[in-house]
Simulated assay, not measured.
Amino acid sequence: MPRRIPDYPDAFAGWNAVSSFGSLISVIATIIFGYILYDIFVNGKEVSNNPWAVPSYFTSIEVFNSETQTANTLEWTLASPIPFHAFNMLPVQS
């Protein structure tokens, strides 16, 4: 679009409407995203220590029984959120 022109030609009216509509969608999406972040930080619940564990209603299926504890590394042994200074000394990989 030409610059420093107070009134644009009618040829740009459609694209101006598309641009305005896209800007409105972006503003609404940003507001919704901000609300979701606020809601998670204020009303969020703590997760379990091992979120990859298989739920109890899958324990009767043989495929899931062998993979019940798929995440058994050191980082999954801590509480969520991780407490400040969780380790007295740095962990050593075995």
Rank of each mutant, 00 (worst) to 15 (best):
P2T: 03
P2C: 05
R3E: 10
R3N: 11
R3T: 00
R4Y: 15
R4H: 14
R4G: 00
R4Q: 10
I5E: 14
I5R: 14
P6F: 05
D7W: 13
D7R: 10
Y8G: 00
Y8L: 15
Y8M: 11
Y8E: 07
P9R: 02
D10E: 14
D10P: 12
A11E: 14
F12G: 00
F12K: 02
F12S: 13
F12M: 11
A13D: 13
A13I: 07
G14S: 15
G14F: 10
G14H: 15
G14N: 14
W15L: 07
N16S: 15
N16E: 09
N16Q: 11
N16C: 01
N16H: 07
A17I: 09
V18Y: 11
S19D: 11
S19M: 09
S20E: 08
F21K: 14
G22T: 04
S23H: 03
L24N: 01
L24M: 06
I25E: 04
I25Y: 02
I25S: 01
I28K: 05
T30D: 07
T30E: 03
I31L: 11
I32K: 02
I32E: 03
I32V: 13
I32W: 04
F33Q: 05
G34N: 08
Y35M: 06
Y35N: 05
Y38F: 15
D39R: 12
D39F: 13
I40H: 03
I40C: 01
I40A: 02
F41K: 11
F41T: 09
V42I: 14
G44N: 04
G44Y: 07
K45R: 06
E46L: 09
E46G: 03
V47A: 08
V47S: 08
V47Q: 04
N50A: 08
P51G: 06
P51N: 07
W52F: 15
W52D: 05
W52T: 01
W52M: 03
A53R: 10
A53F: 10
A53C: 06
V54L: 07
V54H: 04
P55K: 04
P55M: 01
P55N: 00
S56T: 05
F58A: 00
T59L: 13
S60I: 01
I61V: 11
E62T: 10
E62V: 10
E62I: 06
V63E: 10
F64S: 09
F64G: 01
F64A: 04
F64V: 02
F64I: 01
N65T: 11
S66F: 08
S66L: 06
S66H: 08
T68M: 12
T68I: 12
T68C: 04
Q69T: 05
T70L: 08
T70N: 13
A71T: 09
A71K: 03
N72V: 07
N72S: 08
T73A: 14
T73S: 15
T73F: 15
L74F: 15
E75G: 02
W76H: 12
W76G: 01
W76Y: 15
W76V: 09
T77E: 11
S80A: 05
S80Y: 15
P81G: 02
I82G: 00
I82W: 08
F84P: 00
H85N: 14
H85F: 06
H85V: 04
A86S: 12
A86D: 09
F87T: 07
F87H: 13
N88S: 12
M89S: 14
M89V: 15
M89C: 00
P91V: 03
P91L: 04
V92W: 10
V92N: 10
Q93F: 08
S94W: 11
S94C: 08
S94I: 06
